[in-house]
């Protein structure tokens, strides 16, 4: 049965390979999405009107003679500034794993003020000639979740004081044809915040080519506080 399972798995991988790695965003999908969000927003506004009406009535009752309502003002969070690429210094730390290389990209705040990182960066790799290495990016869970550790305070927002670092978990597999290194990593922070070049002695670490017909995969986790920070 093991043979059957292996063969079935191979069949599925072969069929998966028929689907192109990168797909253009269909304009029609965006139009449909906008319509749907507009419908939802209208429903939310109607719901909010009902809730506000109900809350006003309740507050009116609480603020009646002798009524107090502590702690309802000044509770809004202080504004935070998103980190710009120029605030950050990137380092890649990788080690070989079974058929892949894995580790983290650490981004240290070298600016003078606290800033925040949220979400998952777009990570790309280029070879020694500066050509993009084609990888299929797979979103993976953060290291703290993989370790079944408690959720870091404030996550998914990672707040970086000057000198502290955020980490992005990465695992890269099956680079074909075999790369001889060195490679360089680029981390696009998203939302127009810019791109950080990350390098280190380990940046020449590349995974083996295990399946020439299979895609090279790059698992990328979201920003999280660096374990060493």
């Amino acid at each position: 049965m093991d043979d059957d399972l292996n063969q079935l798995e191979q069949v599925l991988r072969d069929r998966a390979a028929e689907v192109p790695h990168v797909q253009d965003v269909p304009p029609r999908m965006l139009v449909r999405a906008r319509r749907r969000v507009a419908r939802n927003a209208l429903a939310s506004v109607l719901g909010a009107v009902l809730i506000v009406a109900g809350a006003s009535a309740g507050l009116g009752a609480l603020h009646g003679p002798g009524g107090t309502l502590p702690g309802t003002s000044g509770s809004s969070a202080p504004p935070s500034t998103a980190c710009a690429a120029s605030d950050l210094q990137g380092t890649v730390s990788l080690e070989g794993a079974m058929g892949s290389v894995e580790g983290s990209i650490d981004l240290t705040n070298v600016g003078g003020a606290t800033c925040t990182l949220t979400g998952r960066p777009a990570v790309s790799i280029s070879d020694a000639q500066g050509n993009d290495v084609r990888v299929q990016v797979i979103a993976s869970e953060p290291q703290w979740k993989a370790n079944a550790a408690p959720q870091p305070r404030g996550w998914p927002v990672v707040s970086l004081r000057p000198g502290s670092a955020a980490s992005v978990r990465v695992r890269w597999s099956n680079a074909c044809p075999q790369l001889s290194g060195p490679v360089s990593w680029k981390i696009d922070l998203g939302n127009g915040a810019g791109t950080v070049d990350a390098s280190s002695a380990d940046a020449s670490f590349v995974p083996p080519c295990n399946g020439p017909t299979d895609p090279s995969t790059l698992e990328v986790g979201p920003f999280e506080p660096s374990a060493g920070a």
Binding site: V22, Q23, V25, V37
Partner: peptide, 25 residues
């Protein structure tokens, strides 16, 4: 949907649609 949300959806599509299409296939 704001322009930013549209951009985020497009970005998510570029990142995830190929793997999602494979699963659906």
């Amino acid at each position: 949907m704001t322009e930013g949300e549209g951009g985020r959806l497009a970005e998510l599509y570029v990142r995830h649609s190929a793997e999602a299409t494979r699963l659906a296939y």
